[in-house]
Amino acid sequence: MTIGGSGDGSPAKNRRRDAARVKAKQLRVSQKKKDRRNKVFLQGGIAIAAVAIVVLVSVIIMNSIKPAGPGPKNMASDGALIGEGMVTSLTPALQPDANPRPSKPDTTGAVANIRIYVDYLCPLCGDFEDANNKQIAQWVDSGAATVEIHPVAILTSKSAGTKYSLRAANATACVANYSPDDFFAFSSALFVDQPKETSPGRSDDEIKTVVRKSGVNTALSDINACIEDGTYESWVTAATNRALDGPIPNSSMESIIGTPTILVNGKPYTGSLEDPKEFASFVQVALGETYSTSTPTPDPTPGG
Rank of each mutant, 00 (worst) to 15 (best):
T2D: 11
G5L: 08
D8M: 08
P11M: 13
N14Q: 15
K23G: 02
K23L: 14
K25L: 13
Q26R: 15
K32M: 09
K34L: 14
D35H: 14
R37P: 01
R37S: 09
K39M: 12
G45T: 11
G45K: 07
G45M: 11
I46W: 13
A47C: 11
A49R: 03
A49S: 11
A49F: 15
V54K: 07
V57C: 02
V57Q: 01
V59E: 07
V59Y: 04
I61D: 02
S64D: 04
A68G: 07
G71H: 03
A80Y: 06
I82A: 02
G83A: 02
E84Q: 09
V87I: 14
S89G: 06
P92I: 02
A93P: 02
Q95W: 10
P102L: 07
K104C: 04
D106H: 07
T108V: 01
G109F: 06
A110Y: 00
A110M: 03
A112R: 00
I114K: 11
I114D: 02
I116K: 10
I116Y: 10
V118A: 14
D119I: 13
C125E: 13
G126L: 05
G126I: 10
E129R: 04
D130A: 14
D130E: 09
N133H: 09
K134T: 15
I136R: 05
I136F: 10
W139N: 07
V140F: 06
G143R: 10
G143H: 04
V147W: 02
E148P: 07
P151H: 09
V152D: 05
L155H: 01
G161K: 04
N170M: 14
N170V: 15
N170S: 15
A173T: 07
A176Q: 06
D181Q: 00
D182F: 01
F183N: 00
A185K: 10
F186L: 01
F186Y: 10
S188M: 03
L190Q: 12
V192H: 14
D193A: 05
E197I: 15
E197F: 09
T198G: 00
R202E: 05
D205I: 10
E206K: 10
I207M: 06
K208P: 06
T209I: 13
S214V: 08
G215Y: 03
N217I: 03
T218E: 13
A219S: 14
I223W: 00
I223Y: 06
S234N: 13
W235C: 00
V236R: 13
A238M: 09
R242T: 05
D245Q: 11
S251C: 09
M253H: 00
E254H: 13
S255E: 04
P260T: 11
T270I: 03
L273P: 04
D275T: 07
A280W: 02
E289T: 06
T290G: 04
S292G: 01
T295P: 01
P298R: 00
P300A: 13
P302R: 08
